[in-house]
Design a binder for these strands. Structure first.
Length: 279
DNA sequence: CACAGCTCCTGGCAGC
DNA sequence: TGCTGCCAGGAGCTGT
């Protein structure tokens, strides 16, 4: 699943390939990947445009091609792959739904589960304005997290997954961050004390930074811009490790369901009882 | 406001 | 071996 670290790696990997490139042709095989625009309009709008920059906001990939922006959300299994040459194998792949012929290569969009979406907008703020804080932005402090948690009475895990609250975390990094901070995913956000908030803030930031450094997490589908897998899956402590020993205490990691999401928790390190000094 | 439930999809897997 | 049927899961949406 592409979450913040995977999207960050993808964007950094694509940047030298895409910035300055001119779109020569757009081939659309499945228009269902497009939001709010027909295949014909999409193609007509993009052909001839020059890509001036590619950035990330939350899990969104934002590609500026004046006078507008191409926004891509990979959801579960989407991927973008750049190739300097035409790739006949990718073009024969039934999961490759569209691609761009650029003046200097080819950019392929692949998505086996067809959850991902592409849209064309005059201003990316139209989509990204509603997103919460960027966890790796210096302005995201423990104090800001404290304000966020105090403003809600929700279970902490669904709150951290809510892109309007915080942008970029998905199932993997929420489970890892809560494990690292020693906080149970069912805890109500407003009951989480100051020391725990600091631990959670550090956990989110360090987990994401480390995952970015590792090239992301490849559990199943994720690949970078040049088809390279990530390596953070080797460092997962909780996610997907049900039945295996907690790296901190040795107790078996359990799998529960929180907010209809598979959730991985250490029953010892992430107790549901509230700490005495924080309540 | 919080949250359950539904939708979109199909590969992968369990069960037979 | 091959079939059926279930499930995961990000986000937008509706209903309570």
């Amino acid at each position: 699943m592409p979450e913040l670290p995977e999207v960050e790696n993808l964007v950094c990997g694509l940047r030298p390939d895409l910035e300055g490139a001119i779109v020569r042709q757009v081939i659309i095989r499945w228009a269902g990947a497009l939001t709010g625009i027909t295949a014909e309009e999409f193609t007509a709008a993009l052909v001839g445009r020059r890509i001036t920059q590619i950035t990330r906001r939350g899990k969104w990939i934002a590609i500026e091609a004046p006078p507008g922006w191409l926004l891509v959300h990979l959801r579960m299994t989407g991927s973008l792959r750049f190739s300097p040459q035409r790739d006949a194998e990718l073009e024969a792949d039934r999961h490759v739904h569209l691609w761009f012929a650029l003046d200097r290569g080819w950019l392929y969009y692949r998505d086996p589960r067809k959850f991902g979406r592409l849209r064309l907008v005059p201003d990316p703020g139209e989509v990204t304005a509603a997103l919460g804080a960027e966890p790796l932005d210096p302005t995201f402090t423990a104090d800001e997290l404290a304000v966020l948690l105090a403003a809600h009475r929700r279970q902490i895990k669904p709150l951290l997954l809510d892109q309007h609250a915080l942008a970029g975390l998905g199932n993997i990094y929420v489970d890892e961050s809560l494990w690292q901070a020693g906080i149970h995913p069912l805890r109500r956000s407003h009951t989480i004390g100051p020391r725990e908030v600091h631990r959670l803030h550090s956990a989110i930031v360090s987990t994401l930074r480390q995952a970015v450094t590792c090239g992301g997490t490849t559990v199943r589908d994720y690949r970078g811009a040049h088809n390279e897998p990530g390596a953070f899956q080797l460092q997962l402590a909780a996610y997907g490790r049900q039945g295996q020993p907690c790296p901190r205490c040795g107790r078996a990691i359990e799998r529960i369901v929180v907010g209809q999401r598979g959730t991985h928790v250490c029953p010892v390190c992430q107790p549901l009882v509230l700490a005495l000094d924080e309540e």
